[in-house]
Design a protein around this nucleic acid. Structure first.
Lengths: 162, 162
DNA sequence: CCTTTCGCAACAGTTAAAGTTTCGCGCCTT
DNA sequence: AAGGCGCGAAACTTTAACTGTTGCGAAAGG
């Protein structure tokens, strides 16, 4: 159970916006992911800087998708939150004079860099729209077996339910 | 949160013990990795439980390797420190009722699990002895180009220089 | 008996994300 | 033009895990 939840939360938000609420205020978004509007603005700022969403102030303001989710990959989202360190483990931060430590850290670094490169490649290959497809399949099954049309937090797939 | 340095530090220690100091007290080991003996004992406890090292109390006590480094892999070390969470990013810890969140977390989980499995497989394929080989090659170069025989922290490759 | 050395418990320090509070500043409505 | 809405940003506190530190107990040996 890792710590940095921003990717998960942002994907959650982007999909809700695409499917259910074209425009959403930070307050409404905060409701979707059970947090508060300041945290939302902090997360969304990176997306705005990368042209994934836009923000508007004042009455009728809030957040909108700036491009379709077919043109946003998980890697875009990862970078939009500042490309945080992926691994919780790793070699010592600063190089040492000790040749033993150098050899150890070189090995660890090599393994971790390869794993990181692979993971980022995989992130780049997954469009947010692919996750939407996953959701739609799950949702169809859910409706069929349980007759329940609500998704979560009062939102339905056909419109904003506040 | 700072990165988890235990694997790096333990590998450093194991190699020094194998090459330079057959027996070492927690105090001496703490000197090798610039920390204090309590941290050392905490790290080494897992290795002892897994039969990688042994500890003895009292005069002449301390730590010893219990088996050759050809029989210890990076994965053994990883598990000896409690198999900490590898990734710093990931989905929300607890499953949600929201189908969107479920779809998001399933995708992230899938990508991360695959990356984790690959990394652990790679750790399992690297014996600590392989890192010793890396070190010996580097050390030979070092002696050739700089004529310096010290490794670090006052230890030489031929014996304990406490 | 006394020193050495590990074993263990308890607590403070560090770091980055998450959560909160409180401003200011545009923008739309009236 | 006034007022409320909503983002922007700064300044905290909280959280979680490893790390660092102190103190006491127990075992081993001279």
């Amino acid at each position: 159970m890792p710590r940095d939840l921003r990717m998960s939360r942002i994907l959650h938000v982007l999909i809700h916006m695409d499917r259910h609420v074209a425009r959403a205020t930070s307050d409404q978004i905060a409701g979707m992911i059970s947090t508060n509007p300041v945290v939302v603005r902090r997360m969304m700022a990176g997306l705005r800087d990368r042209g994934i969403v836009t923000s508007e102030k004042g009455h009728g303001g809030g957040w909108r998708l700036a491009r379709p989710l077919t043109e946003v990959t998980l890697r875009d989202v990862y970078e939009a939150v500042g490309a945080p360190v992926l691994f919780n483990v790793g070699p010592t931060a600063e190089p040492s004079d000790c040749l033993v430590e150098k050899a150890v850290d070189a090995r660890l670094d090599s393994a971790l860099r390869e794993a990181e490169a692979r993971l980022l490649t995989q992130f780049a290959a997954i469009r947010v729209e692919d996750v939407v497809q996953d959701f739609e399949r799950d949702f169809a099954d859910h409706v069929k077996t349980q007759g329940e049309r609500r998704v979560c937090g009062g939102h339905t797939p056909d419109g904003d339910a506040g």
